[in-house]
Nucleic acid binder design. Structure first.
Lengths: 230, 230, 230, 230
DNA sequence: TATGAATGAGTTTTCATTCAT
DNA sequence: AATGAATGAAAACTCATTCAT
């Protein structure tokens, strides 16, 4: 948790630090990320960072649990709980891919949370983040069940949630990267790649994902409008 | 590639080294794993490791591309290509979970290949492994399509393969760990946990996964009854 | 190039480091000189050296191209270009020997630049230094030619410069050491030896050198009388 | 000193070891030369080297004090003590340059003996070699004095010997390398360079050197026939 | 006698963290 | 509050030398 000093920092100074920290942590594994680099690039004394955060992990934690989620939420917007469940689901997936494309560094930071290696401290952190995501997804699926959009006789909600999370998490990320013909690192380096995964393409991918999930979750097969069958 | 010297090592010495190396690399991300630690715990001179392997990466690569796959293949056995597609698929998944439970350190090592952080050299290594796995799965699914077991009108085999891989990879791992009520690291520490995910439970989980996948891939819905309900 | 940090160091600390570095590099060939030793003897943390210099070579380069020449220039003073050529030449040689006797460690450092072994990086460094010395000497001899002090019918200035450089460089150093009845290393160890090569003796040696050079370069033979024969 | 075992070795095996040892020691400074490299390239077990020589230094010493001088002597032939002194001197110098050009690795090994850095053990070795060379040259110059070929009123034979040694040692080597437009290391690498310093060119350089020395040593100026003045 | 695996001390280098200014 | 110099533990890696076979 950042110190009050940090929170009261002039926006410019604060932003410089945050920006460079995100860059550094998104480009190298935690162990190899260097506070010296961050300090130097942000034009901030190394000692100052230690006045804002307890240590390297504290800074990383804050980025992962506060800064990144805040941006992500702002980007995704709030889903409309009233609309059609599957349409909403598909939109959510599409927005997720858009986030990956538009904010690759933040997305990368978040993706790192899935890394099952990592040192104990970092692992705890990652686990917390993952579970939060799972909880959110479970609630959403529960809504689907409640509205009848999901209706599989044998469904175990907990298990299904985790499997679906894998699809829309690592699964779709993998697909996107495959589409880009690049590794995440190369995406970070070149902004031009972003153009290669425009909204239309993203919608198609989201649709494929929903198709798989929908079938698996026992939804009626037909309602799949949009560019699908007609 | 290990030197002939290494391959000709007395079993005891060799095993000590391999064991401790797997432990180290499965407990920390590559960047944080320490050859000194490995040497010390294996009771082997640091210099000796450098007679067996070119460097840290060479040892890691060998574990990841030779040692782990060899054990995994031996454990999984060869699937029967003649039998029912979905039954075979379900078995494969069950064996995968069994491997995770019986050889958690090796499973963990393999899982690390999904780590999207890592330094360029390591990433290259990981990517190669992942793609190999994807290729294998794609071939398997293609067989399903050929036999009619998979029959979805809109199916894009490439995309589907990656999404299915996410389900049976990170997805099921996550589920298993949830079942164990523990993180992979805790599993590594305590062998007794293994008992909590016996064959029956594993079969049930595998079934749930196949359910999701099967529905998503447009297979006929009924045949899903095998060892399930009845 | 040393960092600003280094240049702003408290004199005491800075001197300790410089002194021990010169000692180390003057006592062993570059490859065998150890930063750990320097740090330990200078009572400075190993890490600190890396805040002052990029690496081992950077420190060595600075000593060789900045520190040593600065001291040498300060010691030698500026020669009087107006005076008699050969008298000036003889003085220069005498001062060179005096430097060797008074600052043996620095002289030794400079002499090391003649080492034809060494690793490519170091060789490049050495070569640059040698060529700079040669250029300076060539200019000086050219002045002698211009003033008529040097007048040999067959003279090839480039070749002559290099041969003369050998005389006043390795040649005289060798003579001096012979006089001292010791190797340079023993000179380094015992300051008392310095007394055995006082100004008078040095002048005599310088005279012998000039004698050889002068004859070889075709100067008129007579004017050689100064403090020599009476 | 090599063990009897070594001396009794089959020529082939012995030669392989000697050849690779010379190569290694002529390409890197003593500290960086690697016995492992030598053993590997010579196809001889590392342990065997320790049966032939006490240690790294022992091997190096033998090369420097036995092997290299033997070859050099064989190459130079015995000078004719009866002929004209200066003509003989010039021939000696020319042969020395020829040796440098024809056997660069051996020459390089010998040149290293001039390196004033080096660790105490190595230094002692170098010093002994140098003094041997000096003694030989002094004897030769003494012969010149006896025959009247050298006749300088103020001559100090000891000093003169050392200065002349500097000319025909480091001095001429330097000139030769300058002629070749290359560093000694580059000479080692490319045999084609040898052609650029053929006998004619070498004679001219030798002549220039003798010119300088002769004048300096007070010889009569005229007898310098050959391509000199006419 | 020949072998080459094993050893471990020693090297350069990095970096999170502290603390005096 | 901000600074950035100082620190030292730890890492990867090398290589002369030993010694059991």
């Amino acid at each position: 948790m950042p110190s009050p000093t940090f929170l009261a920092l002039p926006a410019d100074r604060r932003d410089r630090l945050v920006r460079e920290a995100i860059t550094e942590f998104s480009e190298r594994p935690y162990a190899e990320a260097s506070l010296s680099q961050i300090a130097q690039r942000a034009q901030i004394a190394k000692g100052s960072i230690y006045q804002y955060f307890d240590d390297k992990l504290d800074l990383y934690r804050w980025l992962l649990t506060d800064e990144a989620p805040r941006h992500k939420r702002a980007f995704l917007g709030t889903p409309d709980p009233a609309g059609d469940f599957w349409a909403g689901f598909e939109t959510m997936i599409e927005r997720g891919m858009a986030f990956l494309v538009e904010h690759p560094r933040l997305a990368r930071l978040t993706a790192a949370a899935a890394d099952p290696s990592a040192t104990p401290d970092v692992r705890g952190l990652h686990k917390a983040i993952c579970e939060a995501g799972i909880d959110e997804l479970r609630a959403q699926l529960a809504r689907g069940v409640a509205t009848g959009a999901i209706a599989h006789p044998d469904l175990d909600l907990d298990i299904a949630t985790r499997l679906v999370a894998a699809i829309i998490g690592p699964g779709l990320t993998d697909v996107v990267l495959q589409e880009l013909g690049a590794s995440l690192h190369e995406v970070l380096a070149s902004d031009t790649l972003r153009k290669r995964l425009g909204p239309a393409r993203r919608r198609r991918l989201a649709h494929q994902a929903v198709l798989l999930i929908q079938g698996g979750l026992g939804a009626a097969r037909r309602p799949l409008r949009r560019k699908a069958r007609t």
